[in-house]
Design a protein around this nucleic acid. Structure first.
Lengths: 203, 203
DNA sequence: ACCTGAACACCGTTCAAGT
DNA sequence: ACCTGAACACCGTTCAAGT
């Protein structure tokens, strides 16, 4: 009866949306996106299998919401890394890069989900906005670098595309956080150096 | 009866494995990986829903085989692009890059499947081998560049990682083949140039 | 408002059986 | 060898109904 209801789990659950997202993320990292079942999530959260419908139109909507929260957390992590003061520009750039890699390696399944969700035709606007926000951190730092004379002139978005793409690709190319046995974290400084100095010899 | 059998579709189908892979790829690009059903593929190919079992242990095995064939085709496309003769090195590098981008944009759903399959823990060795082969084209070209004095000395694998990652990331970052409205093909020369010359001003 | 239970039309996978 | 049909234990989604 109602006497059994507690504040942490009232009749109307109170937090079903958040509880479902949390359970989904755990299940996602543990068993993969293919194995994720709304019914199973409902069971874990302790609610009937039709309840999620109140908060998510369908399974895809739940996955989109999860991806969106991922982009928001990525944005926060990158912003924090970019804000950290450091003696020279390339160190700050490396810090941003490391934060990016760290996030991807920490939530590998969520990472894949984020990319998929973003690419899907008809992805919700909110999701794309969250993604754009996260990917605006690198251009902002590049702009700072230009002001300091550390970066060639040009459109910051275009210039940071090379760095951002290299980092994004580093994660995609690697398997289990490594490339040819070397952990990605150890590869980041080299990547940043190459992007700054280029592969062509400086006569 | 047996009189109705034709050479193109004998009783034992003859080509069920290939037919399933073809149908799967078509369905994949048309409806997405989530919507892909073995039973539906069986119906399309005209076979009972248990027949795929003869050729693929389970659904994942079929997807892995599809991803593997993707890597093999990517390898062929990249090898062809790298072989094409061109006056100077950076043009050859750009050609390779364009072939890479072209493949990814031509088969977007297959592309995602390939990356996922490769990242999945327990991915079959054959799949990883096919992936490694495809990703060996860039280091090979970098090695050539070093011989011509166009690329700084160093481990070709490490050096080409920056280029390969940048291209891979370019696809991942983009939505519907565009980045901020600009088609990826138009962005490739700039990326290659940045990777060669670097973002830091050349005094 | 928020949640439930029954019902519908699907799945993937297994297994004994057919040619 | 290769394929089939029935059966099992699941899905996602819909809908009328409960508090």
């Amino acid at each position: 009866m109602s006497m059994l209801q507690t504040n942490s789990r009232p009749y109307h659950h109170g937090n079903l949306r958040q509880a479902l997202l949390q359970a989904a993320e755990t299940a996602l990292e543990a068993r993969g996106a293919t194995m994720l079942s709304l019914r199973e999530l409902s069971r874990e959260v302790g609610v009937s299998h039709t309840s999620p419908r109140r908060h998510f139109a369908d399974k895809q909507a739940l996955l989109d919401a999860l991806a969106q929260s991922g982009f928001q957390r990525l944005d926060a992590a990158l912003a924090a890394a970019a804000k950290a003061r450091a003696r020279n520009f390339s160190v700050r750039l490396t810090n941003l890069a490391q934060a990016y890699i760290e996030f991807a390696l920490k939530h590998p399944a969520l990472w894949v989900l984020m990319l998929e969700a973003k690419h899907r035709p008809g992805a919700p606007r909110e999701l794309l906005d969250a993604s754009d926000a996260a990917f605006s951190n690198a251009p902002a730092l590049i702009r700072t670098g230009q002001a300091e004379g550390e970066i060639v002139p040009g459109d910051p978005a275009r210039l940071s595309l090379t760095l951002g793409a290299a980092l994004q690709g580093l994660v995609s190319i690697s398997t289990e956080g490594k490339f040819k046995g070397v952990p990605l974290e150890a590869l980041v400084p080299g990547i940043v150096k190459h992007v700054l100095l280029g592969l062509r010899p400086r006569s």
